[in-house]
């Protein structure tokens, strides 16, 4: 697995976002937006959280091959989402993002997830949910990449467990948005109610993740390993 290189510009921007911009967003939201503050703050923070990853993408500008690998993985998951658009919640997007995270690294995993959300919404329609989907799928790929560095993801049980976890994480994350857009404020009662009503979706997410991971992890993984070895990528 690749090493996580320290990236000075990305780290600087990330710390500016965490220590300067997010407090300003919190302040503006609480001071001026009254009961819309939760909505404003959450949408903005979801967007801001993606910024450091896109900065590291910008710095890859000369590594055309790496950029294109990320584009191919995103295109695969977008095509998958289009292919399965009739079956609600049953999508290979998270699974392909996870595979991308495992074999191409945590950063590439995040980018694959976030780009899949952004590009597939060009077909399905953009909306205030886009930043949340970008962040949720991104973080699913990112965590997969971090776990893969420990070598644990090579075990089938770990893969299955992570697929279930990713389904639950996605559902829990998107319900935060759902609660705030439907009731305007975030209350734990409303959140639990949303989680309970979303159980069929959560199960479908988890099941589809596991199925697609088991079907795709080996063929995609082997081919990514091969292409990495053949052309010396991601080193």
């Amino acid at each position: 697995m690749q090493e996580l290189k320290t990236n000075p510009l990305r780290n600087i921007v990330a710390s500016i976002i965490v220590f300067v911009i997010i407090p300003i967003v919190l302040y503006i939201g609480i001071a001026f937006l009254g009961d819309r503050k939760f909505y404003f703050i959450s949408v903005t923070i979801a967007l801001l959280a993606c910024v450091p990853f896109f900065i590291s993408l910008e710095q890859k500008r000369t590594q055309t091959r790496e950029i294109l690998l990320i584009a191919v993985m995103s295109a695969l998951s977008v095509a998958g989402r289009l292919l399965f658009y009739l079956v609600a919640a049953f999508k290979p997007v998270a699974a392909i993002t996870i595979i991308s995270g495992i074999y191409l690294g945590a950063e590439a995993g995040f980018l694959t997830g976030a780009l899949s959300a952004l590009v597939s919404n060009i077909y399905f329609g953009q909306g205030p949910w886009t930043p949340f989907q970008m962040f949720m799928w991104g973080i699913i790929g990112f965590i997969a990449g971090l776990l893969a560095k420990t070598g644990i993801m090579e075990k089938k049980t770990a893969l299955i467990l992570y697929g279930v976890f990713a389904g639950i994480l996605f559902s829990f994350g998107m319900d935060v948005w759902g609660v705030m857009s439907l009731t305007g404020i975030f209350t734990w009662e409303a959140y639990t109610a949303a989680l309970v009503t979303a159980i069929p979706f959560t199960i479908t997410y988890a099941v589809s993740n596991v199925i697609f991971l088991l079907l795709l992890a080996k063929p995609i993984g082997e081919k990514l390993e091969r292409i990495k070895k053949k052309y010396g990528l991601m080193e």
Binding site: F54, L57, E58, K60, R61, I67, L68, I70, A71, V72, S74, A75, L76, V78, A79, L82, L111, L115, L118, V119, I122
Partner: peptide, 30 residues
């Protein structure tokens, strides 16, 4: 999407490039 990519191609060129390649790959895959 062409307007979106044009707009962001100035500020974040690689990001816009990846989006445009991804958009192109989808019909190609089909």
């Amino acid at each position: 999407s062409d307007k979106f990519i044009y707009l962001f191609g100035r500020i974040v060129p690689v990001f816009a490039l990846v989006i445009s390649i991804t958009l192109r790959l989808v019909p190609l895959f089909k």
